[in-house]
Amino acid sequence: MVAFVILAILTLAGALGVVLLREPVHAALSLVGTLLSIAVIYVTLDAHFLAAIQVIVYTGAIVVLFLFVVMLLNVRSEAAIVRFRWLPPTVIGVVVVAAGVITATALIDPQQLPAPEVITSALGGGGPAQIGESLFTDYVLAFQLVGIMLLTGIIGAVSLVQRKPAAGGEL
């Protein structure tokens, strides 16, 4: 319950950031926070495969695409204002300490991985095998339609963005 409250607060704070922040880049990074919180919410819902897919597809692909387009379109000429001079050394320090602690605990207390059956039961039915079985038996038509839609999307996006070759010129 405590975890859910914390996750809900993080999710809603990120969502409010998406809606309220003025800079598009800040809004997109706020969306990353929301999407990562939602990935953890999927874990609390026993949907582990969805959590992994959420991180890979949403934060790994969709938000990166957003950031590319934001930086492509909103070319700001204002000089970069350095407001947080203390931030880079702090971040480096925290990362180094965290990596050291993780390495130390791994070296001090090495453990075997649990048996595959234990992992499977801990995943609680939301693993890739179960989702795959559901997708490829009950929802195979939807799955194939999604494939066709993605192909159409790829072709459409490429043809929309591609510049027309100059008259007489080669592409």
């Binding site: 495969f49 695409l65 999307g153």
Partner: peptide, 26 residues
């Protein structure tokens, strides 16, 4: 697992929508 399968399909739709939408924007 119907719900989780639906989430999977919605994710794919979101990805396609973003690609097309941002292409139109550009």
């Amino acid at each position: 697992l119907s719900g989780q399968s639906a989430v999977f399909i919605v994710l794919a739709i979101a990805a396609a929508e973003v690609a097309i939408g941002l292409g139109i924007l550009v």
